[in-house]
């Protein structure tokens, strides 16, 4: 079994997800090779062949050209599996490759059971085993699902690659816009009390905020709350917001989408307050309180203040 790992590079840096691909290949016991549009100044610590295209020449984001570079490597290496991170780069490029190869693409793989990939369904409430009907497969791996137990090490055998299909560029990449500066640095808070969709309406954010204050912490928010403009983006915890690991994390009305869990599951102690006791947040919570926020939070705040 041979796997081709599609590493990621952004703003001059190799991304850490690259090592999750290596961990995945190791777990499968697969022979591997790596593909990267990046730079020889930021090579992965990896023992194996690395096909490297220069991002200075081919851009960090250019789906049509990256696709052609990758297809050329696939034609040479003939991997049974092409492995991406399930990320903004991976889920964009993977379907383009799968279609050309005529391969099944299994998205957001969380584990492999008896050789069969498993993917989440319905916000991780369910899981499914996916049977591919094609010999070759493309997979994208859920962020954080696979990890190296040791620090990465090794040095790749680099082969520089080129393509003349630059004229096929359909998308012009014009640069990055950094996350909004300012706001709150949640990573410094010992206690974070976060509000999710379950707070129901923006006025209820206040009962979350006062509990956070009573506990000497900051309030955070899940994505739906930020998308609804009920809270500032600097308060967002999760993949596209901040990653936090406070001493105490209190999730209020947060169902526990994987994107949120990825941002807070390393907290030392997690309390979830939710009316749905089957909510996926229960997977990571040390304590799940089945209660209505509007009734429970003010009572808790009073009792904490009285201590």
């Amino acid at each position: 079994m041979k796997a081709l790992l599609v590493a990621e590079y952004r703003d001059g840096q190799l991304l850490g997800s690259t090592y999750e691909l290596v961990a995945f290949a190791n777990q499968l016991g697969a022979e591997s090779a790596m593909f990267l549009v990046g730079s020889d100044s930021a090579l992965p610590q990896y023992d194996g062949p690395l096909y490297l295209a220069d991002s200075g020449k081919y851009s960090e984001f250019n789906p049509a050209v990256h696709k052609q570079l990758l297809l050329d490597v696939i034609a040479k290496e003939q991997p049974e599996m092409v492995v991406f991170a399930h990320s903004s780069y991976g889920w964009d490029l993977a379907p383009r490759i799968a279609l050309t190869l005529g391969a099944a693409q299994v998205s957001e793989v969380v584990e492999i059971v008896d050789g069969v990939p498993v993917a989440p369904v319905c916000n991780s409430k369910l899981r499914r085993q996916v049977k591919a009907n094609t010999d070759r497969t493309v997979v994208t791996l859920q962020a954080g699902a696979f990890g190296l137990s040791d620090e990465p090490s090794g040095s790749p055998t680099v082969e520089m690659i080129d393509t003349d299909s630059d004229s096929a560029a359909q998308i012009e990449f014009c640069g990055y816009e950094e996350a909004e500066a300012g706001g709150v640095d949640l990573s410094k808070a010992d206690v974070i009390v976060s509000a999710g969709r379950g707070i129901g309406k923006p006025e209820n954010l206040e009962i979350v905020e006062v509990l956070a204050k009573a506990l000497g912490g900051e309030y955070g928010a899940s994505r739906p709350v930020v998308d609804s403009d009920w809270a500032d983006h600097s308060r967002q915890v999760g993949t596209t917001g901040q990653t936090v690991s406070p001493k105490l994390y209190v999730a209020c009305g947060i169902s526990g989408a994987i994107q949120h869990l990825a941002g807070m599951k390393k907290s030392e102690f997690i309390v979830a307050i939710n009316t749905d006791k089957d909510a996926p947040i229960g997977e990571v919570a040390d304590v799940l309180l089945v209660a209505d926020l509007k009734q429970f939070l003010p009572v808790l705040t009073e009792k904490v203040r009285a201590l």
Partner: peptide, 17 residues
């Protein structure tokens, strides 16, 4: 190109209270 062989509820991990 693919099918769902089996769907199931994930095992509860951690066993929180």
């Amino acid at each position: 190109k693919q099918e769902t062989a089996k769907i199931y509820f994930p095992e509860k991990k951690g066993g929180g209270l």
